[in-house]
Each structure stands twice: as structure tokens, then as C-alpha cells.
Amino acid sequence: MRIHPDIWYRLSPRWRGLCWGVSSGLMLFGVTGVQLHIQQQQLTTQQAQHEQGAAINARLWTAVRKLFPEDDVPASMATRPFSPLEFDTGEMRMVRWQPVSAGGELVVDAVWAQIPTLFATLARRDVAVGRFTIQPEQQKLRITLQLERQNAG
């Protein structure tokens, strides 16, 4: 629909300003709606990828547990409860332990060769690692672990 220029110029400045404001607002509303729609699609895609990744991670952990069944663990080691003081040895030093109701945060300085032992010990103590980070710290590595008790129910 074309508006003849004479009609536009016959409007008072107040009406022209009002028309311009309404049309600008409608365009802004439309652009914002399109942006929100695109963001919602991206969020849905990311959530689907996250769920797919979590499912793959669960399958991989199941496969790893099948490779190393708990029957191979001596009974004396499997029955010992978790203690953060176990990680204060010669090549491994506990920096911080911050407990919470169903786990906690453990920070350890260790050499690279001790990291597999650290995870194996945690697995034997019925403690799951929710997430971890490894950062260089002088001559050793600083490992920050978010721990969760497996049978916290």
C-alpha cells in the first residue's frame, strides 16, 4: 500500500511523529520476536545435544565398568569409607576439602602418574566425580574434584 506524499505532508508534525513512532515500535517488536524465536530454537538444539551427550557418557561409563568389574577389587579396600586424608601422601597432597551434604570439593596437588590412582581410589570408595579440572601448579598439577557419594540416599 503506497501512501501518496501529499497525504503525508498534509499531516501535522505531531501526527507524523506518532505514525513514525508506531511504525518504529512495530518493526522493533517484529525484530525482537524473530530474535527470541531464533534463540529459543538454538536453546532447544543445545538441550537436545546435551541430553544426547549425557546418554553417550552414561553408555561409555557402563562399558568402562564392564571392563573393570568390582569383583577385582579386594574386599578390604571396597569396604573402607571415603576419607579425604587418604590423598595426603608423598607424591599427592590434599590442599582443601570442603564437604557438603552428599559429597564435596576436593583439591589435590599431584604428579601426573598419580592421577589414575586418584580416580581408582575414589571409585573404590563409592564416590563419583561430578566434574574435575586439572591445572599446572609449580612442579605439580592441581586437581579440583566435585565429588558425589554414590549411595547418598
Rank of each mutant, 00 (worst) to 15 (best):
I7F: 04
W8S: 02
W8A: 05
Y9S: 09
Y9D: 13
R10Y: 06
R10I: 04
R10W: 04
S12D: 02
P13M: 01
R14S: 06
W15H: 10
W15P: 00
R16P: 02
R16W: 00
G17Q: 09
G17P: 07
L18A: 02
L18I: 03
L18R: 05
C19E: 10
C19M: 09
W20H: 11
W20P: 03
W20E: 12
G21Q: 11
G21L: 08
G21E: 11
S23D: 09
S23K: 08
G25S: 06
G25E: 02
L26C: 02
L26W: 06
L26T: 06
M27K: 12
M27H: 11
L28T: 04
L28M: 05
L28Y: 04
F29A: 13
F29R: 10
G33N: 10
V34F: 12
Q35I: 13
L36I: 11
L36T: 10
L36W: 12
H37E: 14
H37K: 10
H37S: 13
H37L: 15
H37C: 05
Q39M: 11
Q40H: 11
Q40K: 14
Q40P: 02
Q42I: 00
Q42K: 08
Q42H: 05
L43V: 08
L43R: 09
T44Q: 11
T44H: 07
T45I: 03
T45D: 08
T45C: 05
Q46C: 05
Q46Y: 05
Q46D: 10
Q46W: 08
Q46K: 12
Q47M: 04
A48V: 07
Q49W: 06
Q49V: 07
Q49C: 07
Q49P: 05
H50Q: 15
H50V: 15
H50T: 12
E51M: 12
E51F: 04
E51I: 11
Q52W: 06
Q52G: 04
Q52K: 12
G53Y: 08
G53T: 05
G53W: 08
A54Q: 13
A55S: 13
A55T: 09
A55W: 03
A55F: 04
A55N: 09
I56C: 08
I56D: 12
I56R: 15
I56E: 14
N57D: 14
N57A: 14
N57F: 10
N57L: 13
A58S: 13
A58D: 14
A58C: 07
R59W: 10
R59D: 15
R59Q: 15
L60M: 14
W61E: 15
W61L: 15
W61Q: 15
W61C: 06
T62W: 09
A63S: 09
A63F: 04
V64N: 07
V64E: 03
V64I: 07
R65G: 03
R65T: 01
R65E: 12
R65S: 11
K66S: 10
K66L: 13
K66D: 12
L67G: 07
F68W: 12
V73M: 06
P74F: 03
A75L: 11
A75W: 00
M77E: 15
M77R: 15
M77Q: 12
A78L: 04
T79H: 05
T79I: 03
T79D: 07
T79E: 04
T79P: 00
T79S: 11
R80P: 01
P81Q: 03
F82L: 01
F82S: 02
F82Q: 00
S83Y: 06
S83I: 01
P84M: 05
E86G: 09
E86W: 07
D88N: 02
T89R: 13
